[in-house]
Nucleic acid binder design. Structure first.
Length: 315
DNA sequence: AAAGGTCGCAACCGCAGGCAT
DNA sequence: TATGCCTGCGGTTGCGACCTT
């Protein structure tokens, strides 16, 4: 938060634009202007609404705080699960994640991630480097970071725990390496590895109360958990093109039963079937071009020799 | 009760991409 | 093609609130 700088108010400096915290009066001006006129050119909004702010500042204020469809308040556990899940797929694409959480802003999600989730990751890595080397992954999860509730929604972290070598030391160093090198934010290994989680074998024994998220026929994520009887419809990943021409190679054999492309399971629920449609995530398993949404897999992976903790080598 | 430390979050900054000229 | 403007995004900052000692 920043204090409004008195030296930059319109009262004593007509030329300089205000910065810092927004006053209730400014909020009121912006809201009433937006309601009456709708969004236009932001610099015009600032001008026409009688605000001594730059358009950028107005845009940010509106999007992050004043928009009437904002939810506000703390994230529910379900929203937290979704954030973690989408982050494992999208990395730090906060706006993309926010687009899938109605009423939430990218800034909110980014802040949540940078404060709460990173803190938990840190705690996890420090707890795993405890002298007690007999501590199992499930012990770690019971320790607080990955609750039973969260297990099914933590494909990346769970998978790195379960697929790395059997020693806790390796698991710990993998997690630390991921966090320290920011690889955890790299969508590519996550995306490919995440598919493992979605495979038919299934990793988790989800409790009945766990959310079950998948890609519906209409391409929307659907949540069928019993969180207060709520049903969420989450827009599909925009970054995942459904263009027939936008294809990636199937690194797995889609004709074999163990192919993750044939059926995508989340929490034991088959959420995608390549026999039915080419909508959403499943499309990534088909095609010729080496692309994952807008990411060029080859280009992004060329500097990454290998991910020992991920159990695969980068060519 | 006071001082210092930590956390959460609103807002800024800089960059990249799209578009018009 | 070059340039400038606008928008959108991710990273970072800094202040108030809260917590700890």
């Amino acid at each position: 938060m920043r204090k409004p700088d008195p030296s930059e108010t319109s009262d004593n400096n007509q030329n300089k634009l205000r910065k810092g915290l927004w006053s209730p009066e400014e909020d009121e001006k912006l809201v009433s202007y937006m309601i009456n006129n709708g969004q236009g050119c932001w610099s015009d909004v600032a001008k026409n609404a009688g605000l001594d702010r730059c358009g950028k500042s107005c845009r940010l204020r509106w999007i992050n705080y004043l928009r009437p469809d904002l939810k506000r308040g703390a994230f529910s556990s379900h929203e937290q699960d979704l954030i973690i899940h989408f982050h494992s797929l999208l990395g730090n694409r906060w706006s993309q994640i926010a687009a899938r959480l109605p009423g939430r802003t990218d800034n909110e999600i980014k802040n949540f991630w940078n404060s709460t989730v990173k803190k938990r990751l840190k705690n996890l890595s420090s707890s795993t480097s405890s002298p007690n080397t007999s501590e199992s992954s499930s012990d770690i999860m019971r320790g607080g970071f990955i609750s039973m509730h969260e297990q099914g929604i933590m494909p990346l972290y769970m998978d790195s725990l379960s697929s790395s070598s059997s020693t806790t030391t390796t698991t710990t160093s993998s997690m630390q390496a991921m966090v320290q090198k920011n690889l955890i934010n790299d969508p590519l290994p996550i995306m490919e590895h995440g598919v493992h989680m979605f495979s038919a074998s299934g990793y988790f024994n989800a409790p009945s109360s766990m959310p079950q998220i998948g890609v519906g026929i209409d391409g929307f994520y659907e949540e069928h958990g019993d969180f207060g009887g709520e049903l969420y419809n989450i827009p599909p990943l925009e970054s995942i093109s459904i263009d027939e021409n936008d294809k990636i190679p199937n690194t797995y054999d889609s004709n074999t039963d163990n192919s993750p492309c044939k059926n995508i399971f989340i929490n034991g629920v088959n959420t995608y079937n390549t026999n039915n449609n080419k909508t959403g995530v499943g499309n990534y398993c088909q095609g010729e071009e080496l692309k994952v949404g807008d990411w060029d897999l080859e280009e992004l992976m060329k500097d990454v020799p290998s991910f020992p903790f991920l159990g695969f080598q980068v060519k």
